[in-house]
Write a protein that binds this DNA or RNA. Structure first.
Lengths: 191, 191
DNA sequence: AGGTTTCGATACTCAAGGTAGCGCAAATCG
DNA sequence: CGATTTGCGCTACCTTGAGTATCGAAACCT
């Protein structure tokens, strides 16, 4: 049966190009930094035309967000205890942000979003919300507490990245875990 | 006596213009956001020529940093106890970042710095270092601990600002204080 | 083959950071 | 007063980078 969305629309099919673009985006950002990683350069690095990139993603910010989504994937919310769960989540995002290009791209798109409400919407909805919801479910915490948790963890990691140009070292990630966990422990919440 | 730096060099003296420019910068950033607060617009808002602004500050980023320095002023490191001291510092910076334009400008210049090593140097040296040193002296903590403290506090506040466009509300600032203080308490430091 | 859609390439618009040069204004020195 | 020195406003300009328009060629379906 021809469903409402026919199995294959007529015309030339889109070439599967996402993976190549994402890889080129991250490596270009890693080599040149966020601002110098222009869409022209990314396109040149893939051999794909710039216009094709703009056919898939409406703006550079949206491209970066898609790239980050692809790089992050789902949160691995594992851990027997609540503490292990939070600890592994913090270490996971810290490791991701430490991957080449990821931290730069994240900090860059984040800063662009400050003065771009549309991009902020994309960032909030596409990137933050899935993780926020997953955390709410896993931890049984209300939205505002999880948002605060994300502000602390991601904000800290990005601030270090932005100030030093280098991701946070392991000892400091451990410090972050040791600071955050007691505050979010079941028996030690806010007054 | 003619000291090495003569009391008044020859030629037309510079007109005192900093205060006007700083005020116009903050209000423009507040109204239009960081990216739309172009140097042209700031100049227009003051009635001062853009070239004059570039004679004082070498780049937009440097202008913003100078503006933030002026807006922040010295840290009021008061408080009888160590806890009061840290708490007041956190609430002070949170309030400053909440002032109109300040948070936007801070987050904006911060993000620009990610891909601009020169600006990062200015930001780190001119803005962060004075407060870092003052905190080291007041708290008697080593540099890396104070840097971590700054990452957590400023990073969290800026992340909230960047994600929502609004400064952190008082309840969350309180949460931040309650989370940070125990970790930095004298009798509960890291292993 | 014919229709439909996508790709690549070129060329373009627009905004913004930053610079150069000119004429004038305001101060000091003699 | 006049000469010099320095700063200001102005206009015009350069460069980069995001995003768009157009057009011919390519790939898929019937």
């Amino acid at each position: 049966m021809t469903s409402t969305a026919s199995a294959r629309p007529p015309g030339r099919p889109r070439s599967g190009v996402d993976a190549v673009v994402f890889a080129a985006t991250l490596s270009t950002v890693h080599e040149l930094g966020y601002a110098r990683a222009t869409v022209d350069r990314i396109a040149a690095a893939t051999g794909i035309a710039k216009t094709t990139i703009y056919r898939r993603w409406p703006s550079k910010g949206a491209l970066i967000v898609a790239c980050l989504l692809d790089a992050f994937g789902p949160v691995p919310l594992e851990g027997a205890s609540r503490a292990e769960l939070m600890s592994s989540a913090i270490r996971w995002i810290a490791a991701k942000i430490g991957e080449p290009g990821v931290g730069d791209a994240f900090a860059g798109v984040f800063s662009d979003a400050v003065s771009d409400p549309e991009l902020r919407e994309i960032l909030s909805t596409r990137l933050q919300d899935p993780y926020r919801i997953a955390l709410q479910d896993a931890l049984g915490e209300p939205e505002n507490r999880v948002l605060f948790f994300i502000d602390v963890v991601v904000g800290t990691l990005l601030h270090r990245m932005g100030m030093t140009g280098e991701p946070m070292v392991d000892a400091d990630v451990t410090a972050l875990v040791e600071m955050v966990l007691p505050y979010f422990a079941e028996d030690a919440g806010p007054a």
